[in-house]
Design a protein around this nucleic acid. Structure first.
Length: 286
DNA sequence: ACCGCGTCCTGTTAGC
DNA sequence: TGCTAACAGGACGCGG
């Protein structure tokens, strides 16, 4: 589920509503959810949260970092001291099911890690280990390094459909299945287009569409398709601005097509994102 | 190097 | 209505 805009929204809300706080307990409610690569002597203070790709990093004293990945269905839900106390001592028996881990803070408040499909993980590690963990990620699509030159480099001689490459975290960090479709639609590029067949003009539109879509989505608190919720349990608002993902019809009137590409459902408008054979024949950039 | 597939899980929905 | 199968926002590892 959570892609860059959702993860950024969560990080922003952790920073504005939850952190800094001091942890007196990190309880693993389901084995395998919390991976301890270093000791975190409690209590310890979490000062702030940051994002790298789709990872959430919680920065703490004693050089401790918590690196969390929400995968498909993970979410953080904050409980004030009053809310947490009302449910004590049946901590797992909260109004939420699927609580996989729980942070308890010195002021009695709590942060729940909820994840029905249990793919999500929270890793406790040192700052150095965290750097290594995240070292393999590609450029941040909202950074200056993400430009047409960069795309040209990673698309060079690749016949892979451009959408499959947008999803590769070691190339570009943070784009997932929904935004890949939305970005390509706004760039006017068919998802099946072989990456190397994109022209300089296409790359420029792809860069600007990526920035535009991700920024807009962040501004609207992300996309809530089914179970994504913000830390305060509110929904995001970007789902109202989706143009192809899950849509029957494009605003241009054409019927939206759906196809499995690289194992993921892919949505596009055949009219706004034409498959141009002429481009392939020319091949390469420029 | 690349592709598709199965895998980790649970929940929801579409179809019979 | 009730059962079953397909599918779901992610990522990794395998074999071809």
């Amino acid at each position: 589920m959570p892609e860059l805009p959702e993860v950024q929204t969560i990080v922003n809300e952790l920073n504005s509503h939850v952190l800094p706080r001091t942890v007196i307990g990190l309880r693993e409610c389901r084995p395998g959810t919390v991976v301890r690569r270093t000791d975190a002597p409690e209590p310890w203070r979490i000062t702030r949260a940051s994002r790298r790709g789709k990872f959430i990093v919680l920065h703490g004293e004693h050089n401790i970092r918590l690196v969390a990945h929400l995968r498909m269905t993970g979410k953080f839900v904050f409980q004030s001291a009053e809310e947490a106390e009302a449910l004590y001592p049946s901590l797992t028996n909260t109004s939420h099911t699927h609580v996989r881990a729980q942070f308890t803070f010195t002021d009695g408040s709590a942060l729940l890690f909820i994840d029905p499909r249990t793919f999500g993980v929270i890793e406790v590690m040192t700052a150095r280990q965290a750097r290594e963990r995240l070292a393999g990620l590609g450029v941040e699509p909202l950074s200056k390094r993400f430009d047409t030159d960069y795309l040209q480099g990673i698309f060079l001689k690749r016949g892979t459909p451009v959408k499959a490459l947008l999803l590769r975290q070691e190339l570009i960090a943070g784009i997932g299945n929904i935004y890949a479709s939305e970005i390509l639609h706004r760039a006017g590029i068919a998802p099946q287009t072989p990456a190397a067949a994109l022209l300089a003009d296409d790359l420029a539109r792809l860069v600007s569409a990526t920035r535009r879509v991700l920024r807009l989505a962040i501004r609207h608190g992300g996309t809530s398709i089914s179970d994504y919720r913000r830390v305060d349990d509110k929904t995001g608002e970007f789902q109202g601005m989706l143009r192809v993902y899950g849509k029957p019809q494009c605003r241009c009137g054409a019927v939206i097509q759906r196809e499995m590409l690289a194992g993921r459902s892919t949505w596009w408008c055949p009219q706004c994102q034409p498959l141009s054979d002429a481009k392939y024949l020319k091949g390469g950039h420029r």
